[in-house]
Design a protein around this nucleic acid. Sequence first.
DNA 1: AGAATACTTAAGCATGTGCTTAACAATCAG
DNA 2: CTGATTGTTAAGCACATGCTTAAGTATTCT
Lengths: 122, 122
Amino acid sequence: MLNNQLPEDPDLDSVFQALADPTRRAILIRLCDGPASVSQLARPFAMSLPAILQHLQVLEGSGLVRSEKIGRVRSCTIVPAAVRRAEGWLSARRTAEERRLDRLESFLDSDDPPTTTTRSTP
Amino acid sequence: MLNNQLPEDPDLDSVFQALADPTRRAILIRLCDGPASVSQLARPFAMSLPAILQHLQVLEGSGLVRSEKIGRVRSCTIVPAAVRRAEGWLSARRTAEERRLDRLESFLDSDDPPTTTTRSTP
DNA sequence: AGAATACTTAAGCATGTGCTTAACAATCAG
DNA sequence: CTGATTGTTAAGCACATGCTTAAGTATTCT
């Protein structure tokens, strides 16, 4: 049985997945201050360098971070567009829900409250 | 070796984790149109009911969804505040990065570029 | 060249995630 | 009461995740 649902942008999976870890979010916060090398990024954490590397690979795989190796140093930068895409999805949900509440409100503000299904006014 | 880093809000972990799945995001989109029962939420998916239940538990554990059982029907609703909290984190990153670019720009627009190193805090 | 630096790869391990099926409630309709 | 509807619990399985250590490679310094 094939799953022919979910017409949604599959790329957001990896973005939110990347955001779902405190180490990776801390790395992103750090990168907002400007580009950094792998060992600079690793310094604050009680974690091995390979572990940080793996976090960086997750971040890069999601598109939230880009990196380039120059000499023996890899320089990592945040990718604002990817951050905005995730933000945009949440923003769309928020506004959709707000629109619904507005419709509901203006419906209740009209005259005739017929069989108040949700929350009978006390 | 204890990990005494990461002074950040740990609750965002579960929020982003919940968002990192297309089924759960589709459920959230659906809930923007108003409350729904478990089987209503399950209907569009080629997936067993227990699977949907588990997704709902993840969503509820993250605070993105609240639910209440009335009779034999569980009614699920989205929690806008939780959506806004995730959105707010991303928004803060974006603005932080924009501020940095502004500083960089006005710095480059001025005359004297001294030692273009990133972060020379000794 | 030889040593230090900065990163990378590989393998392994414990735990978490996303499903499944089967069986078990609880409630409502006739 | 009987039976259909709606949801819940439990067990199990395949695979993903987040680390670790050990052993590389590539670059720069002296």
